[in-house]
Design a protein around this nucleic acid. Structure first.
Length: 256
DNA sequence: ATGACTAATTATATTAGA
């Protein structure tokens, strides 16, 4: 079964591209970030028409995540990252489908740094770490995926110099990501491409796509139970080059 | 050193993204 993640940068602006991608690659589970839509405004009928069930966790204007499942509804759907009842940003949704637990996240960007947005990012990552402890302890097959807004290592960015002061690759961001992996998660794209050079995001500006100025910030973390079943993982890079594309490309993992 | 794009919003400039 294929499990995919796609930061779509606006579900309404991306609708034709999104339907096209689902029909062409047909993931069993598709996790979306940056739907930029409230739940009631999400165009669910268009997805249901091609056989997907829809679970959303949205808010007005920005953020927002969704889980699409092929041929049946997700179960045990839970919205919001535990640990801070005052956090109103819609960045996390998790559910079970086909015997796998998927946690879909849109981690805060954190720019500009230093500042309150960076503090929020690091606090969010600490909450995530605590929550993922529990998922690992369950010993169920789990995939934690989405837009992590972290460039894990220098090999994951086209230019270290150009991004040096960005929140995405500050030591604090990288340390927090490394602590997650240290719990026992497998970074699927990383283990299959140990030398790096794999990008999932290309900025709209300055011809970044044409120059291949990208970086890897969309990740698929597999629990040991899932890592054993991984048969392939990759980036659907060509979708970044299409008309009215998102600035992210989809990422996916195939589990036996 | 700066700006470049794109999407959404009680919009015609601002916020946010990365």
């Amino acid at each position: 079964m294929r499990i995919a993640s796609f930061n779509i940068n606006g579900v309404k602006a991306r609708l034709p591209r999104l339907i096209e991608w689902l029909e062409e690659t047909r993931p069993a589970i598709a996790c979306l970030q940056e739907i930029k839509s409230q739940d009631e405004g999400f165009p669910r009928k268009e997805f249901e028409a091609i056989g997907y069930h829809v679970e959303t966790h949205g808010q007005k204007g920005f953020n927002g995540v969704a889980i699409l499942t092929d041929g049946g509804p997700a179960e045990n759907v839970s919205r919001g990252l535990p640990g801070d009842p005052d956090d109103e940003q819609a960045r996390f949704i998790e559910a079970d489908f086909n015997g796998v637990h998927v946690a879909n996240l849109y981690l805060p960007n954190g720019n500009p740094q230093p500042g309150p947005k960076f503090d929020y990012k690091l606090a969010w990552m600490e909450r995530l770490r605590l929550h993922l402890e529990g998922l690992l302890a369950s010993e169920k097959p789990c995939v934690v995926l989405g837009d992590f807004n972290v460039i894990p290592e220098d090999k994951d960015v086209y230019s270290v110099k150009a991004m040096a002061s960005d929140a995405l690759m500050q030591p604090e961001s990288r340390d927090a990501y490394a602590r997650l992996l240290g719990q026992g998660w497998t970074d699927a794209l990383n283990v299959l491409n140990p030398r790096g050079g794999v990008w999932t995001f290309w900025d709209y500006q300055a011809g970044a796509w044409q120059r291949d100025h990208g970086f890897r910030i969309d990740h698929l973390l597999l629990s040991p139970e899932c890592a054993d079943r991984m048969s392939a993982a990759g980036v659907d890079k060509e979708y970044r080059g299409r008309e009215k594309a998102s600035d992210h490309a989809p990422v996916w993992v195939e589990l036996a």
